[in-house]
């Protein structure tokens, strides 16, 4: 499903070139749950951004379902991200001026896959599933951080992505909420068959993954 070959990413800074990710080879099968662990600043988020088509690698290839991501044109890559990849960031990433249902429907509207009424019906269904059926017209500022994270997951799922990338989605949440959200992600992986790559510091959770990728100094160490 996912194949990374010799992926590297370097940044040019005032202090010189910083290598965030170096020579990573990674394979994740369809429907698999892979956990990426490592210390802060080890390159986990950068790797996720490269895999998710958000950041162009300095070298190497990322192939998802046979498509070499970074050989696509900018528009094609946008379309690919929109249809194939769901991304849950490590911070609340909702647009504050849009209602929850608009936030969730937005990727479907951008991709023009289901039409406006279809997109909104799907968004309502997903919010219902996340236990937020009563908040369709609410704005992000009106709900809790945990609920915002659920909305972000619903948004990531709106286009039935083949790959769900979650970059420490519960980093700023309490233990109970973290548990509920992680269970939700694992249920999606198990029941829908969506491939899940999760960056986490929670080793207990990582142990439940079929594959654990340990990153240190931008490289896979285990």
């Amino acid at each position: 499903m996912l194949a990374c070959r010799q992926v590297s990413k370097s940044y040019r800074t005032e202090r010189g070139i910083v290598t965030a990710v170096s020579g990573i080879d990674l394979d994740v099968a369809a429907g698999e749950f892979a956990a990426v662990i490592g210390r802060s600043g080890s390159g986990k988020s950068t790797l996720m951004a490269v895999i998710g088509g958000l950041s162009r690698p300095s070298g190497g290839t990322v192939t998802i379902d046979g498509t070499d991501l970074w050989r696509l044109s900018d528009n094609a890559l946008s379309g690919f991200r929109n249809g194939k990849i769901g991304y849950v960031f490590q911070f609340a990433s909702l647009l504050p001026t849009l209602r929850l249902i608009d936030n969730v429907a937005l990727p479907a509207m951008l991709g023009r896959r289901h039409g406006a009424s279809g997109s909104y019906a799907r968004a309502a269904g997903l919010l219902e599933r996340m236990g937020l059926g009563g908040y369709l017209d609410a704005y992000p500022s009106e709900i809790s951080a945990g609920e915002q994270r659920r909305v972000a997951i619903a948004r990531a799922l709106i286009n039935d992505p083949a790959l769900l990338l979650a970059d420490e989605p519960t980093s700023d949440l309490d233990e109970q909420t973290e548990g509920e959200i992680m269970n939700e992600l694992l249920t999606i992986n198990r029941e829908v068959g969506t491939t899940l790559i999760l960056v986490t510091h929670n080793l207990a959770l990582a142990e439940r993954a079929q594959q654990v990728v340990h990153i240190a100094n931008g490289a896979i160490v285990a």
């Binding site: 958000l54 528009n75 946008s78 379309g79 991200r81 929109n82 991304y87 937005l106 951008l110």
Partner: peptide, 15 residues
Amino acid sequence: GELGLLKAIGARRAQ
């Protein structure tokens, strides 16, 4: 941040 988010969820450059 907002533009990056929109781009991340599939907004094209023209959009």
